[in-house]
Amino acid sequence: MLRLSHAMKAVSYLAIISLLGVGLFVPIAQAGLIGTEAIVNAADAHSDRDRVKKLLAREDIRNQLLALGVDPDEAGARVQGMTDSEAQTLAGKLDQLPAGGGVVEAVLIVFLVLLFTDIMGFTDVFPFVNKPAR
């Protein structure tokens, strides 16, 4: 399973790179309007290496979304809605970044510690604890 997913990853990277390779021979300069993105982010030139990196970041996020239980159709839409900088932030980190869920899944000792810290006003886990004002 692991080996297969590695193989699939390699294939998809190859596909991306070969697609981009085709793009390399097409003249990039186009007549007409210049988009706001190019105006705002003029500093980071859109080199081909950059484009590969960005595409790989998105592919990586999509795979991670799937691995974390997101529906395949929805995963694509979620990645598509991201800006490049968001994709860069998220790539490879979906299992580490804080995920707000708000529920404690704790063993007794943690429950007791959090209860105590709640009473002291250091935390705010349990709604039934009256926290001190100061």
Binding site: R78, A99, G101
Partner: peptide, 23 residues
Amino acid sequence: VPQIYLPARHGSLQPELLVATRR
């Protein structure tokens, strides 16, 4: 939920809240 929830993480990531908003 299908736009921002990560089942295996039991939660939602900050950037995904932004994405859902703009969608």
